[in-house]
Amino acid sequence: MSNSLPVVAVASLGGTISMTPSDAAGGVVPTLDATQLARSVPGLSEVATITTASIRQLPSASLRYDDLMEVLAWAEQQIAAGAVGVVLTQGTDTLEETAFLLDLFWKLPAPLILTGAMRAPQAAGADGPANLLSAVRTAIHPDSAGRGVLVVMNDTAHYARWVSKGDSLAVQAFVSLDGGVAARLVEGRPTFFHAAPVRAQPLARPVRAWPKVALLSAVLGDEGELAELAVRAGYEAVVIAAQGAGHVSFGFAERIGELTQKVPVVIASRAAGGSTASQTYGYVGAEIDLVRRGAVMSGWLSGLKSRLLVTALLASGVAPGAVTEALTNWSKLTRR
């Protein structure tokens, strides 16, 4: 291993990439640590000098906000110690969420890259080693700087802002439907298709306990009772993944008008892609009506990521009454 190679810090959080069979559990469970993962990748030591840390050993659905803040602090320490980039391995179930949340707080130009696997290490055609190698290769590439948090899977780099998991099991699970992918890796080198985007100002670190923010889908025959119950149960904001371009039923609209007097209410689209509308539909329950009732439209941001943004804003000290303005400003800054 040459001392002239760039240093990349790799941390494992668990997930399929680290899973091996367990007779007791009846399936695979996370067991491999970061050092074992790095050693399993052919040629990795020829690309970069790898330092490793095993921070969590969890399926990604059980990761918590505080886990991610610990990871964030660790990643910043690695850059301060001389690493050119940081790679995190984790499960893919929440990968689009953790990447976006970390991106809201990541303040350094050095790349922070998340990767994982759709197939466990013992499976035929396991994709974990290739994904980890591609992530490290992306981390050391100079064009990766200033792009915030990236997700690298299947030789493709995605921006945290746009990435989503589009398939539950396929190797080509991750897509960036609206914003487009950041780069493709060819012969071991990422080719970025656009200049680094203008990023929003990173949020201040949490200054209070993480709030509960509800995410509810509006469905046929829905009058909004669950949204009302969520507020009664102590949720501090509500995100509605609404029909079409941000529409709900007449009854749901009435409830939204009442709820906006108590908590921030954000309207996203439940569709796989596309933006909410702002000035097309005027009927009761459509975007013009909902904005008049005090709701804020999420634009291109999905319901999943709208919920994380509202959660992070409140946790970082933004007052509930200022969330609407903060959301609007954030959306403007992150358009490409």
Rank of each mutant, 00 (worst) to 15 (best):
Q57M: 14
I113A: 01
S134R: 03
A34G: 11
P121T: 05
G125D: 10
I50P: 10
T89P: 02
G91T: 05
S134L: 05
I55F: 01
G43H: 08
Q57P: 04
G82I: 04
T94S: 00
E46T: 12
G128E: 06
A61Y: 03
D67I: 08
L102P: 03
A117G: 13
E97K: 02
W106Q: 13
Q77W: 07
T92V: 08
P121W: 10
L72H: 12
A99S: 14
Q57T: 12
Y65P: 09
L32H: 04
A110K: 01
L44V: 06
R56Q: 12
L44D: 06
Q78E: 11
L68S: 08
Y65H: 15
V86D: 09
A81Q: 13
S62L: 08
L102S: 02
Q57E: 13
V47E: 10
L72P: 02
N131E: 06
L58F: 05
L133Q: 06
Q78W: 01
T115Q: 11
L32A: 12
V71Q: 09
L108V: 12
D67Q: 08
D33C: 06
Q90V: 03
V86A: 07
Q122N: 11
T115V: 11
A48L: 05
G43D: 12
T115N: 10
I79K: 09
L102C: 04
Q77Y: 09
R56G: 08
P59F: 01
E46L: 14
T35R: 15
K107H: 12
R56E: 11
L72I: 06
E70H: 14
V47I: 15
P121C: 06
L44I: 06
L104Y: 05
Q77G: 15
H141K: 03
R64N: 02
H141R: 02
L95Q: 04
L58M: 11
L104E: 10
R39E: 15
A53N: 14
T115E: 13
K107D: 13
E46Y: 05
I140V: 11
T35G: 15
D103K: 05
Q122P: 02
P129H: 12
L72T: 03
F100H: 04
Q77R: 15
G116E: 04
T51P: 00
L44N: 05
R64D: 04
W106G: 14
M69G: 00
L101Y: 04
V84G: 01
L102F: 07
Q90E: 08
V136C: 01
M118T: 01
G43Q: 12
D93H: 09
D93N: 13
G91A: 06
L72N: 06
L104S: 10
Q57L: 10
E97I: 00
T138G: 03
S60Y: 02
A61H: 03
A38P: 09
R137Q: 15
F100R: 00
S45E: 12
S40N: 15
L88P: 05
R137M: 09
A75V: 06
A139V: 03
T52V: 14
L104Q: 09
T49K: 06
V87R: 07
L114E: 01
A126V: 09
P42M: 14
L133H: 09
P109I: 10
D33P: 04
R137C: 06
D67H: 14
V86F: 07
I79R: 11
A75Q: 07
L114M: 10
G125W: 14
L108N: 13
T94L: 00
